[in-house]
Design a protein around this nucleic acid. Structure first.
Lengths: 219, 219
DNA sequence: GCGCTGTAAGCTGTCAACAATCCGAATGAC
DNA sequence: GTCATTCGGATTGTTGACAGCTTACAGCGC
């Protein structure tokens, strides 16, 4: 029997396309590739120094995630989120996040609550940071909230919604909402999760997402 | 100015891989490829009479949908749904379908209501049909329900959940639930949507999904 | 007999080249 | 000047071949 040696971690080489996916997703949500811009396969392949195959695969995966759209024989383009799309994103996010909040409020699982509190704290501490950083921390909080439901499917759905939110927020100017205000809202959510009523908690979730939607739509 | 001629529909030649996707998805959900079985690229390519490229692309898309899992350097396999997965599917379905039912109950949009009634009727008329056909009609009803929310994202999420449900139901024997019973439940839902209270409607949705989950899990 | 090592087969991951398609500018007719 | 047509460039869709990884089995030493 082969024994497992302590201290040595098994190497897990990821596939090329999955590395490309991560890089491209990051660039899409942070606005490097603005909505509507074309993702040319050959150009990307040359940039990464690899063949078109893995690039093509990565693009297909992002299309499936909903961040890119594929027009046959034309190419893939970054989605352009219209007002209807933004409202739809918020509708979907509200559905998922209300459920997650409700579950966590019932379970009061301290492991998740403390992680959320930590995320809210990071957001509060990021007062002077860049707008992109603020958005990143904001959505990290919400991702933890959804993850607390311990539902792989809800988390997977939310991942795309979060990415779309980031796309929407990336192009917005950093005016509109002050980081301090945002941090306060998140801290309120944590407090209500700990010892608020369920009604007030869900109302706060709704209000928070409504504020985000307002910021996304009036531009 | 080129005029548009009535009665002629624009031809939309789909890409090869998307055709493959549809065929494979159908075969996966109907149990032709049982959970755990490997989808060998070369073999499929030979079967379809095309190259490995489009097949590979189709498989990647199904992986992204969640119907297949990709093990690096090993291949892609049909997902095996454990009890936890089935519960998760039902949790997610409940969330989405409750929302859709609630929205339709509020709007009372006759266009959607009549389509739902028609779907329920088809289910009732399929008394003697095969189990696969029953399941297909069942999920068609639920797809219409979700579509009535007119949320592209909710519909897209639901598509995967419906496929997973079909995978789960495909391997179940057709015992357990009589078609007549199923049809009655759907008809009840339509009636409650039309003139029931919201509470009773949502309770009926829950009960219906609970019954499905029970059928999926005790096998 | 038991365990380890080397080898073979099959599969996926990647690459470079070819074919098909679409868009846009230049050209010509009215 | 305006419209229709044609041609060229660029990009995607598809193909076949090669390299790398994983697994299973046979061979060897103990």
């Amino acid at each position: 029997m082969t024994e497992v040696i302590e201290g040595l971690v098994p190497i897990t080489r990821r596939t090329t396309s999955s590395l490309i996916v991560d890089q491209l997703r990051e660039r899409i949500v942070d606005g490097t590739f603005p909505p509507g811009s074309q993702m040319a396969e050959a150009q990307l392949a040359a940039t990464f120094g690899i063949s078109r195959g893995p690039v093509r695969e990565a693009l297909q995966r992002l299309v499936q995630e909903g961040l890119l759209v594929n027009i046959k024989n034309r190419g893939v383009f970054v989605i352009e989120l219209g007002p209807g799309d933004l409202a739809d994103v918020c509708l979907s996010r509200r559905l998922i996040e209300r459920k997650a909040a409700s579950l966590l409020w019932k379970s009061k699982d301290e492991r998740h609550l403390s992680r959320l509190a930590a995320a809210a704290g990071e957001l509060a501490a990021a007062e002077g940071e860049s707008w992109a950083r603020i958005v990143e921390l904001d959505l990290a909080f919400h991702e933890i909230l959804v993850a607390s439901a311990e539902s792989p499917r809800l988390s997977r759905m939310f991942a795309t919604l979060a990415a779309e939110t980031r796309i929407g927020l990336a192009t917005r100017p950093d005016v509109g909402r002050r980081p301090a205000e945002l941090a306060a809202e998140h801290r309120t959510l944590v407090e209500l999760l700990r010892d608020g009523t369920e009604r007030r908690l869900l109302a706060a979730v709704d209000a928070h997402l409504d504020a985000t939607l307002r910021q996304l739509t009036d531009a």
